[in-house]
Each structure stands twice: as structure tokens, then as C-alpha cells.
């Protein structure tokens, strides 16, 4: 048990280091797209450690406690994440729904803390974040339900990944092309990438939920954000890209997925919040339902 918990914490730490490095590399890549030189690849580490080295103010204990709850909830979620087929802390507990519910703990902690600051822009940001969540979860859930049905009722993330590695089965992004597109769009919504960046919106609502954070609390939120991105991208890799047999394959897939999303995001402008909701309830929802019908009832799976 102790070993499992240590492995789980190791996975969370691995996710933090991996995603922070990837974030720095991607800032460099986006800078090259914009004909700039860009920061050092370890810039994100410098940013986070700098935030921890600053002094910060508090806005009451809800504000402080919410940050710790957010970080703790996200670390707890990351502990269940399988990295490769062998690196997994709690065998048999990597259920998809565990991730969905535990992720909400982190998000709610952040929402609580942000509203605890009493800033109206923070409340607007939290409201927008929850609205965006409501928008992308519906089509994404339908696609994942389809996958669970196709794999014979298992919702374990590593078993779904193993299912795609059996000879004769394709990765789900190929087997369910429409569903794959929906998943990519939903993933961009989850990560808050550019067209769906409404709840951060620095120029509009002054970075939304983070408006009152500075110093150490902001540093903790950054760590939380990095681990959240790790969880979401890993879920995508395991559910749609066939998981990873070795660590090298995992790193390669992670890099490709995250960079592709960043490149897409670097050429888009921001939607308004009502446009986000209407967008997700129009095409992705339609495509997800169509995919579910043709995959389950007609049995057309590539």
C-alpha cells in the first residue's frame, strides 16, 4: 500500500516535470511560429519557482484553503493515472469515472478559493469555467460511452488502451473518426486553448479566476494547472491513441498531441462564452451522436 502511494506520488511528480518542460518547449515553438526567439525551454520552471519565492497576501482562509484543496485534489487524481502499461500505481482503480469525479474536486477547490477572494472578475471567470465544462463534457462523454460499449463494458483506462493494442483493432481515433475529431475539440476546451480560452481571457476579465492571486498561491495554482494538463492529455492518449507500451512511446505521443494542440491554438482568436456553448452543442454534439449511432447500432467501426 505504501509502495503504491509512493508510486502514485511519483506519477504526479513525473506529470508535473513532464508538462512543465513541455510547456516551456511549446512556448519556444509558438514563438518560432511568430518569428520570435522565445524563452528558454525551462522558463516555466523559473516562473513557478519565482512565484514560490515571492511574498503574498491572503484574502481569508477560504482563499488559502481552496488553493490547497485544488492542488491536493489534482495530485490525488494524478496518482491514479497509468503512464505506460506497466507504470501504474493502483492496479484496477484507473477507472475513467474516477478521473472525471476527482478532477471535479480540484476544479471546485479552485472555484471556492477564487470566489473567496471577493473579486467580481473572479466570479465571472469561475462561472465561465463551469459553463465551458458543461459545454464540452456532453459530446466528450457520449464518445467515451461509445468506446466503453465497444470494448465490452470496461471503463478502465489501461484496459481500453490494451484493447486498442490487440491485433485487428485500430486506435479509436482511427476506428471512430468523427469521435476522434470531437475528442480533439473537447480536449482543447478542457485545456483552455485558444478558441475556448474564455474563462482566462487576460484582456477581457483580467485572467478570470486567477485575478487576485499572487506569489505562493499563484505558484500552487500553476503547479495544479500543469498536473491537470498532464491528466487530460494522458487520458486522451490512453483512450484514443492506444496508450503506450514503453515510456519513450508515451513521451513521443504526449509531445505530438500537446504540440499539435498548441499549434492549432496559436492561430485562433478567442470565442465569446455564448459562442463556446453554442459551438459545442452544435457540431461536436451532432458528430458525437452520429458516431455513437453508426458505431453501436450499425456496427461500422473501422
Amino acid at each position: 500500500m505504501v509502495v503504491n502511494i509512493l508510486v502514485g506520488l511519483g506519477v504526479a511528480l513525473f506529470g508535473f516535470v513532464l508538462q512543465t518542460a513541455m510547456g516551456g518547449i511549446n512556448r519556444k515553438i509558438v514563438a518560432r511560429v511568430q518569428k520570435r526567439i522565445g524563452p528558454k525551454w525551462y522558463q516555466e520552471f523559473i516562473d513557478i519557482f519565482k512565484l514560490f519565492s515571492k511574498r503574498s497576501v491572503s484574502h481569508g482562509w477560504i482563499f488559502d484553503f481552496g488553493v490547497i484543496m485544488a492542488l491536493g485534489g489534482i495530485i490525488a487524481t494524478a496518482m491514479f493515472m497509468p503512464v505506460t502499461a506497466n507504470i501504474i500505481a493502483f492496479e484496477g482503480y484507473d477507472n475513467f469515472f474516477i478521473f472525471v469525479y476527482l478532477l471535479a474536486v480540484g476544479m471546485l477547490g479552485m472555484a471556492m478559493s477564487a470566489s473567496g477572494s471577493g473579486n467580481p472578475l473572479a466570479s465571472i471567470g469561475v462561472m465561465r469555467a463551469l459553463t465551458t465544462m458543461l459545454a464540452y463534457e456532453v459530446p466528450f462523454m457520449i464518445v467515451v460511452m461509445t468506446i466503453i460499449k465497444l470494448t465490452g463494458g470496461t471503463s478502465s483506462v489501461s484496459e481500453i488502451a490494451a484493447f486498442q493494442q490487440i491485433a485487428g483493432n485500430n486506435w479509436f481515433i482511427i476506428a471512430l473518426p468523427l469521435g476522434g475529431i470531437v475528442a480533439i475539440i473537447s480536449l482543447m476546451g478542457m485545456l483552455g486553448k485558444k478558441p475556448f480560452e474564455t474563462y482566462i481571457a487576460p484582456a477581457e476579465i483580467a485572467s478570470g479566476p486567477m485575478v487576485e492571486y499572487g506569489g505562493k498561491q499563484l505558484g500552487m495554482l500553476f503547479v495544479m494547472h500543469e498536473i491537470t494538463v498532464f491528466i487530460e492529455v494522458s487520458l486522451f492518449i490512453h483512450l484514443f491513441l492506444g496508450g503506450a507500451a514503453t515510456l519513450g512511446v508515451y513521451l513521443l505521443k504526449y509531445f505530438l498531441v500537446y504540440t499539435a494542440l498548441n499549434l492549432i491554438s496559436s492561430v485562433y482568436a478567442r470565442f465569446k462564452i455564448d459562442q463556446v456553448v453554442v459551438f459545442f452543442y452544435k457540431w461536436p454534439l451532432f458528430m458525437a451522436v452520429t458516431q455513437a449511432i453508426i458505431a453501436i447500432y450499425l456496427g461500422w467501426v473501422i
Partner: peptide, 22 residues
């Protein structure tokens, strides 16, 4: 800030609120 002098290579960047800024 933009591609002519690119202050991001020094690690600088714009921030939205006073609390976050140095």
C-alpha cells in the same frame, strides 16, 4: 514585446493584474 525585440527571450511577459506582476 513582438518579434522585433522579443522580450520573452528574457523571460518577461505581460500580466493581467497587479497581484501577479513583479
Amino acid at each position: 514585446m513582438t518579434s522585433a525585440y522579443d522580450m520573452e527571450r528574457l523571460g518577461m511577459g505581460p500580466m493581467a493584474t497587479p497581484r501577479q506582476a513583479d
